[in-house]
């Protein structure tokens, strides 16, 4: 009850916030969230997202690549998956060993502003989903800030948080590494993907979400407001 009321209010305020008028996409995104809050997740369009960065600190590290894959009415759509590389100031450095994107690959990369614009466009009628959403959102917000859109209010579904709740309901403590994407997937007997690639991880996250929602009682019985969080 409270959750719903709070999300409702928050979104209403955001929609009427003039500062955000700069981005119609963002407005539409909020509008979409607002109208869908009460709907079952089986009717909702999600956008599973994963960002590879040069490090974990949004203040000094940069985004390297973004992968997105939509989930429409409970079906993952690989055909509409997209992947963007971002231009960066420095070098990918050591992080290349993790995400496999090397400086030489970034020749075709786009400016951060372009990519953020594209991302907002992609999610105007979708709900963001990520594993450990906080990190991704921090980077996006930081990028938005640079573009002069001072947003501190993005909403997303976090598969890591969902998993954490599920485990806590069963036992008292969580072991180190138990919430990693692949560890979570193993619990649902989902195949393990080796590549640390933004798009693969987005897919992995999308599949995990479907598995979690099914285990939580089925897509028809969960409403968006039950799982959406503000960041």
């Amino acid at each position: 009850m409270f959750q719903k009321w709070w999300l409702n209010n928050k979104l209403k305020r955001l929609i009427s916030n003039n500062k955000l008028n700069k981005s119609t996409h963002l407005q539409r995104h909020y509008q979409y969230l607002f109208t869908q809050l009460n709907k079952p997740v089986s009717d909702i369009n999600f956008l599973a997202l994963d960002i590879e960065m040069t490090g974990l600190d949004h203040k000094k590290d940069e985004m390297v690549s973004i992968g997105i894959i939509p989930i429409i009415k409970g079906q993952i759509q690989p055909g509409y998956a997209q992947y963007k590389l971002l231009k960066i100031q420095g070098s990918v450095g050591q992080s290349a060993t993790i995400h496999g994107v090397h400086d030489r690959d970034l020749t075709t990369a786009l400016d951060t502003s372009e990519v953020i614009e594209w991302l907002l466009q992609q999610c105007q009628d979708k709900v963001l989903v990520a594993h450990h959403a906080l990190l991704d959102i921090q980077f996006i917000e930081h990028a938005l800030l640079k573009l002069g859109i001072p947003v501190h209010q993005l909403f997303a579904v976090d598969t890591l948080q969902l998993e954490k709740q599920r485990i806590y309901r069963k036992k008292q403590f969580i072991k180190n590494g138990e919430l990693r994407l692949n560890a979570c997937r193993e619990r649902y007997y989902l195949p393990i993907y080796s590549a640390h690639n933004a798009l693969t991880d987005a897919l992995a996250c999308a599949e995990l979400l479907l598995a979690q929602l099914n285990k939580m009682g089925g897509l028809e019985h969960i409403k968006l407001q039950d799982i959406l969080r503000k960041y």
Binding site: Q75, I76, P78, L190, L203, A206, E207, L210, A211, G218
Partner: peptide, 29 residues
Amino acid sequence: STLTIVYYSKAQKLVHVDTNQPQLYIVRT
């Protein structure tokens, strides 16, 4: 690129097969 991915859970018991929209179901897991 034409695939869609769906997760089926035991709780649903049956796979709902839409006879008007036939498709091949490829079992991943």
